[in-house]
């Protein structure tokens, strides 16, 4: 009897709105792909909690489900089942427009392949998130410039992506991710397309951003990169295998 009531109580507690300061909370999160008649479980019942101002690395071999998890956390993808709160708001039941709002305001996503608009200048790329929340043009340009200054690229703001180096492109992408002052910065293998020196440079930038109070989650399969973080979550076959504090 006692154990049953404890279970029920536990369930209610788990489903309750997370406390303030708990930025990310997932509960039994699943993502299952259907390939023909075969089910592929890319994420299998992940429970994840990330506090404000944490610096987390998600590690694991290729195909272990890191990107899938990251896309779920970044609201780019929707879970097959399970619950997910960001900043105390239940995301897994949100409508399309609400999700767009979360992507715009709460999340800054940095991709391995930068994902900049090729025909737009660095400045315009950084402006994009502001365009989608209706920031007036002059304020937008001001904020975008500030964001580019933070990544030391103010002097390149009129360059198109193909006129920039890989490291510079990734810095533009980081400036874009930060321009709306999101609650969390998510980066999926941000150094994957860069040489190691440039990769270290980008990691140095992440360090500075963390020191300024940003919450960062980055995905990597390299130990060199993961060691910058303060907490490392190991993923294997869609499950959390190890979760350790490293600093």
């Amino acid at each position: 009897m006692a154990s049953l009531s404890a279970q029920v109580k536990g369930g209610i507690e788990d489903k309750a709105v997370p406390p303030d300061g708990l930025l990310i909370k997932t509960l039994n999160l699943w993502k299952t792909y259907l390939m023909g008649s075969v089910e592929i479980h890319a994420v299998c019942g992940v429970d994840l909690e990330i506090q404000r101002n944490e610096y987390v690395a998600i590690m694991g071999p290729s195909g272990s489900g890191k990107s899938t998890l990251m896309n779920l956390v970044g609201c780019l993808d929707t879970p097959s089942s399970g619950d997910y709160w960001i900043n105390r708001r239940l995301v897994s039941t949100m409508s399309d427009d609400e999700l767009a709002y979360i992507r715009n305001k709460e999340i800054g996503f940095v991709f391995q392949t930068f994902n900049l608009l090729p025909r737009a200048s660095a400045l315009h790329n950084v402006e994009l998130p502001l365009i989608y929340n209706g920031t007036p043009a002059d304020a937008r340009i001001q904020l975008a410039k500030e964001s580019l200054r933070m990544v030391d690229l103010e002097d390149r703001m009129h360059h198109k992506p193909n006129e920039l180096s890989g490291g510079q492109r990734q810095r533009v992408a980081i400036a874009r991710a930060l321009v709306n002052h999101p609650s969390i910065l998510l980066a999926d293998e941000p150094t994957g397309n860069l040489d190691s020196a440039t990769g270290q440079e980008i990691m140095g930038l992440f360090d500075r951003l963390h020191e300024r109070g940003n919450t960062i989650v980055l995905v990597t399969h390299e130990h060199d990169i993961a060691q910058y973080a303060h907490r490392v979550i190991h993923i294997r076959d869609g499950k959390i295998a190890k979760d350790e504090r490293t600093r």
Binding site: D97, A100, R103, Y132
Partner: peptide
């Protein structure tokens, strides 16, 4: 399509 994906990832709504 890729461009649309980028825009959506940055917060573009359907109506945008």
């Amino acid at each position: 399509t890729h461009e649309i994906g980028i825009r959506k990832s940055l917060g573009a709504r359907r109506r945008d």
